[in-house]
Computed example of a mutant assay.
Amino acid sequence: MLPFIRSDLAQFTAYKPHPSSNTSEPVATQFDRLDTNESPYDLPPELKEKLAWTYQQVIESNRYPDGGHQQLKETIAEYVNDSANLSQPLFTAANISVGNGSDELIRSLLIATCLGGEGSILVANPTFSMYGILAQTLGIPVVTVGRDKTNFAIDLQAAQSAIANTQNPPIRVVFVVHPNSPTANKLTAAELTWLRSLSEQILVVIDEAYFEFSQDTLVAELAQRPNWIILRTFSKAFRLAALRVGYAVAHPEAIAILEKVRLPYNLPSFSLAAAQIALQNRQLLLSTIELTLNERDQLITALSQHPALQITQSAANFLYLRLQPNTFDSPDTILKILHQKLTSSGTLVRLLKEGLRITVGTPAENLRTLERLKAAIASLKS
Rank of each mutant, 00 (worst) to 15 (best):
6 R>G: 06
8 D>R: 13
15 Y>D: 04
16 K>S: 12
28 A>G: 08
33 R>M: 10
35 D>M: 06
42 D>R: 11
44 P>E: 01
45 P>G: 06
49 E>K: 05
55 Y>E: 14
59 I>K: 06
63 R>K: 15
69 H>C: 12
79 Y>K: 03
81 N>Q: 09
81 N>K: 07
86 L>F: 12
87 S>R: 04
88 Q>W: 04
88 Q>V: 15
90 L>A: 08
96 I>E: 11
99 G>T: 07
100 N>C: 11
107 R>N: 13
107 R>C: 10
113 T>K: 14
116 G>Y: 10
118 E>W: 09
119 G>S: 03
123 V>P: 01
124 A>G: 08
125 N>T: 13
126 P>I: 02
127 T>S: 13
128 F>L: 12
131 Y>D: 01
142 V>H: 05
149 K>L: 14
156 L>F: 10
158 A>H: 12
160 Q>N: 13
165 N>H: 14
177 V>I: 01
182 P>I: 08
184 A>W: 04
190 A>I: 07
191 E>S: 00
191 E>M: 06
191 E>D: 08
194 W>F: 14
196 R>F: 07
197 S>W: 04
197 S>P: 12
201 Q>I: 01
203 L>P: 04
204 V>R: 08
206 I>P: 05
216 D>G: 02
216 D>Y: 08
222 L>W: 07
226 P>I: 02
230 I>A: 12
235 S>H: 14
239 R>M: 14
242 A>V: 04
246 G>A: 05
253 E>L: 05
255 I>P: 02
257 I>C: 04
260 K>Y: 04
261 V>C: 01
272 L>G: 00
273 A>L: 00
276 Q>C: 05
279 L>P: 08
282 R>S: 15
285 L>V: 01
286 L>A: 03
296 R>E: 09
299 L>T: 05
304 S>N: 09
305 Q>P: 02
312 T>Y: 06
320 Y>V: 07
324 Q>F: 06
333 T>Y: 11
334 I>F: 01
336 K>R: 15
338 L>H: 08
345 S>Q: 13
356 L>W: 07
356 L>D: 02
357 R>L: 14
363 P>N: 03
371 E>M: 11
376 A>E: 04
378 A>Q: 15
378 A>C: 03
